[in-house]
Amino acid sequence: MGFKLLSKLLVYLTASIMAIASPLAFSVDSSGEYPTVSEIPVGEVRLYQIADGVWSHIATQSFDGAVYPSNGLIVRDGDELLLIDTAWGAKNTAALLAEIEKQIGLPVTRAVSTHFHDDRVGGVDVLRAAGVATYASPSTRRLAEVEGNEIPTHSLEGLSSSGDAVRFGPVELFYPGAAHSTDNLIVYVPSASVLYGGCAIYELSRTSAGNVADADLAEWPTSIERIQQHYPEAQFVIPGHGLPGGLDLLKHTTNVVKAHTNRSVVE
């Protein structure tokens, strides 16, 4: 069995187990497998329904001669939608809004960016022009300005110390501490036991640490421990890039980060 097929099978099995364990909360999309990078042309966006009122959005972007996937989250909030992270750029984010209108038909009224990198804030200006209120932590807003990236308009308070959590509509926002970046936030959907790890969490097929220019490698494993301790009931975990899975993604990420750190020390 090929690795790609095995990865998709694991996603399907995880979703099936969740649907059985929580039949009222989960209505997993039966329309197909989780979209992969090879299936999404740059400039297009796919939506994948995880649970009743919960979707991931998947886009792709060219970077350094390669094409990478990027995940975000959409959560229903009454007759409105909360968006977590842009679709990595203005063109993708405009396509995301169009796809949401086509498939869901509810307005996106608020959006949260989970850290300051372009795959999370690139497209904020498109959201703002569409009347979406954009939010991020003060740290993310400051770092985005320093980096020359787009800056969300509103500040999220109460997320300055490791372990801080605040309720934001249908989700809980959690600051686990520094990891992929010093400002990275985690998003949890309690009604569906869905954990969105953003770039602080890796997919299972990833074996290298990737972009760690703004990471705190020493603190990252401790931050992941905080996530595990705060959300032990999480059933569906979405990484910032690639295929979702279960809580095993947290341990896998820790292993990859520690291996990278150990290699760096040896070198």
Rank of each mutant, 00 (worst) to 15 (best):
242 G>T: 05
12 Y>D: 15
258 K>F: 11
38 S>I: 07
205 S>M: 09
171 V>R: 02
244 P>A: 10
74 I>T: 06
3 F>Y: 07
28 V>A: 12
92 N>P: 04
40 I>G: 15
217 L>T: 12
110 R>S: 13
46 R>Q: 09
65 G>R: 08
203 E>W: 00
259 A>F: 08
15 A>Y: 10
7 S>P: 08
55 W>L: 02
19 A>G: 12
108 V>Y: 02
152 P>L: 03
107 P>S: 13
48 Y>W: 12
129 A>L: 10
207 T>L: 13
131 G>W: 06
239 P>V: 01
232 P>A: 10
264 S>Y: 13
164 D>C: 04
30 S>E: 15
242 G>M: 04
141 R>N: 08
176 P>R: 02
127 L>W: 00
229 Q>T: 12
136 A>H: 04
176 P>W: 01
173 L>N: 05
47 L>D: 03
191 S>R: 11
66 A>V: 13
1 M>S: 03
206 R>H: 14
186 I>P: 00
199 C>A: 00
133 A>E: 13
115 H>L: 03
264 S>D: 12
243 L>G: 14
174 F>N: 03
93 T>Y: 00
69 P>G: 15
230 H>K: 14
258 K>N: 13
154 H>F: 14
146 V>I: 11
141 R>S: 05
217 L>R: 04
23 P>W: 14
139 S>N: 09
130 A>F: 10
25 A>Q: 15
23 P>K: 10
238 I>G: 01
122 G>S: 07
151 I>S: 07
53 G>L: 07
48 Y>T: 15
6 L>Q: 08
256 V>A: 04
88 W>E: 00
92 N>K: 04
52 D>Y: 09
129 A>R: 10
88 W>N: 00
162 S>I: 10
46 R>P: 04
168 F>D: 00
218 A>T: 11
13 L>R: 12
177 G>S: 06
241 H>S: 00
133 A>F: 11
61 Q>H: 05
205 S>F: 12
147 E>M: 14
147 E>W: 15
102 K>D: 13
237 V>S: 01
150 E>M: 02
24 L>N: 15
140 T>N: 04
230 H>F: 15
116 F>T: 02
241 H>A: 00
119 D>E: 03
164 D>N: 14
212 V>C: 04
91 K>P: 14
207 T>H: 12
101 E>S: 12
94 A>M: 15
258 K>V: 12
34 Y>K: 15
249 L>N: 04
82 L>N: 04
241 H>N: 03
104 I>S: 00
146 V>S: 13
15 A>E: 04
248 D>C: 07
16 S>A: 14
129 A>Y: 11
180 H>D: 02
70 S>H: 01
57 H>I: 01
35 P>Y: 10
223 S>Q: 02
180 H>S: 00
243 L>K: 13
100 I>V: 11
90 A>C: 04
37 V>Q: 15
69 P>V: 15
32 G>W: 10
42 V>K: 10
240 G>W: 04
167 R>F: 11
216 D>R: 08
11 V>R: 08
66 A>H: 13
262 N>L: 10
27 S>D: 10
200 A>W: 01
248 D>Q: 14
233 E>C: 04
49 Q>M: 12
33 E>A: 08
88 W>M: 02
145 E>Y: 12
249 L>C: 02
86 T>F: 00
65 G>K: 09
17 I>Y: 08
114 T>I: 01
80 E>L: 05
115 H>W: 00
249 L>T: 03
